[in-house]
Structure formats: C-alpha cells, structure tokens
C-alpha cells in the first residue's frame, strides 16, 4: 500500500490507489493492468478519449462493478474487502444525471444524506449551507425537473459533498454544459482542493480542463500511458504542452480545440 508523508510527518495512505486493475466485457478487455495512485489533497485528472475506459474505471472504484483483477484502495480501504469504509470516504458525480426529476432539490439531497446515515436536522443544516454556497439557496423546494442542466450538475456536486468525503470522483462532470457553467464548476472544485484539502479525481476528455500543476493520468484503450505531474509528463514526452503530449501518447495526429479527439 502506498503512503504519503503528511506535513506533520504522519504517514497517510494514498487517497486512491489503483493496482494492476484489469476489466473485461466478455472477451473484450476494457482495462489492462492499470496502476496509479493519487496523493491526499491533490487535483488529479483522468484524461482519455471517449471509450478509453474512464467510466469503467469509475464503476470499479465506486463498486458498481466488482474488481476481479487487481486491487483498488480508498484511503487504505480495499473496495472489495471493506466496501463500507471505502465508500463512506467517496463522493461521486456520475456522468449521467442521477437526480430524481419528480422530487424537490431538498428531497433529493435528504435522500442522499439518509443513505449515509445522516439524521434530518444535521442533513438540513448541511443542505442549506451547501445550497447557499452554490447560489441556489432559493431553489430548496423546487422540483429538480424545473432546473437547468448546469443547476442540476451543481446540485449533484453539492450532493456528493454532503457526507463530507475526503475523495471526490467526477466523471465528465462538465459534459453538456455551456462554457461559463463549465468554468464555474471547475474553478469551484479546484478551490475546494486548495481550501479544504479534499482530493479530487476528475475524468474528462477535454484537454483545456488540465492545468500544469495537476496530476494527470492518461488512459487510452484501457491502458495507463502516463501518470504524474503534467509538466513531468510533458517533459518525458518531449512535447511542448499537454495537448501535444496527449496526441503523441494516444497516437492522435492532432488535438484540435478543447476536446481530445
């Protein structure tokens, strides 16, 4: 198990440790011996083209799929052997919308709180605080159906933070949003890392969401092609930037615009 030295000299386990994980859909291999780890308090980006295996990896980390080959640990807790301990440390924003459209914002968030054993009074206090922070305090009793796509996404992020997880997974959280909503959400999550020390694993296929100080894991056809700080990955590839490094590694002729395709 990988450990990271904390400031006080206390040894902390990695926020997320993926060791030799493979996954198959029938005969087709979706992940191949993938290994990497994310230190606590880091913003890590999982970068890959559509179909690279990002959602499969997230399904394994969140125990929607069983990890049959390799191990996944969240703050030292094996997702297979100690799923409860691992999942309570994990907040997840899925790629697909998972809010109940017919329920109100409050009812959706309360439901999530109860799924983590948080009582009503404490849940309501946290819900009001989080909604105020995402500028949606006045939408508490509105049906989710009446919200815009960006607002729904913000609610899902608030929901993922409700049980105060030290690790947050976001699977293509900005897909389908306009530029302004994308930038706002990304900035808010980055700020969360700086101010709260939370660890974030952000899956995307959009290269312009990657910053130089980030930890990046590049996934292609189920294989981890690069894992490390962005500037280290760029230097190792002899490239001029992450865009060029990604194009080189994934064998894509050029990566135009924001999308890695």
């Amino acid at each position: 198990m990988q450990h990271v030295k904390a400031k006080e000299g206390v040894s902390l386990p990695a926020a997320l440790e993926v060791s030799a994980v493979s996954h198959f859909y029938g005969e087709k291999q979706a992940l191949s011996e993938s290994s990497f780890s994310i230190a606590p308090g880091r913003f890590a980006v999982l970068l890959g083209l559509n179909g690279a295996g990002k959602t499969t990896l997230f399904s394994l980390i969140s125990r929607l799929f069983d990890t049959r080959h390799g191990t996944i640990r969240i703050f030292g807790h094996d997702i297979r052997r100690e799923p409860g301990e691992a999942l309570r440390r994990l907040g997840i924003v899925f790629q697909a919308r998972t809010l109940d459209l017919d329920l109100s914002v409050c009812q959706n968030l309360s439901y999530h709180a109860s799924l983590h054993g948080i009582g009503r009074a404490e849940a309501m206090s946290r819900i009001r605080t989080l909604l105020a922070q995402i500028d949606m305090g006045d939408r508490l009793y509105d049906k989710v159906r009446s919200l815009s796509g960006g607002q729904m996404r913000r609610i899902e992020i608030a929901r993922a933070l409700l049980h105060r997880p030290p690790l947050l997974l976001l699977d293509e959280a900005t897909v389908g949003l306009d530029i302004r909503s994308r930038a706002e959400i990304l900035a808010a999550i980055r700020e969360l890392v700086h101010t709260e020390g939370i660890s974030v694993f952000w899956a995307t296929h959009l290269i312009d969401e990657v910053e130089e100080s980030d930890h990046v894991v590049i996934l292609d056809k189920g294989r981890v092609l690069a894992d490390g700080r962005v500037d280290d990955v760029v230097r190792a590839c002899g490239a001029n930037g992450i865009r060029e490094a990604f194009a080189t590694l994934s064998g894509v002729a050029s990566v135009a615009g924001g999308a890695a395709r």
Binding site: P40, T129, L130, L161, L162, P166, A188, I189, E191, E196
Partner: peptide
C-alpha cells in the same frame, strides 16, 4: 459559486 465543506474543513480520513 464557492464550494466549501458544509460547516468546517473536511477532516482527515476518519
């Protein structure tokens, strides 16, 4: 939009 943990700094992994 400024996210923080609900009431206090997110604690070390419990």
């Amino acid at each position: 939009m400024t996210l923080q943990s609900a009431t206090s700094r997110i604690p070390e992994p419990a």
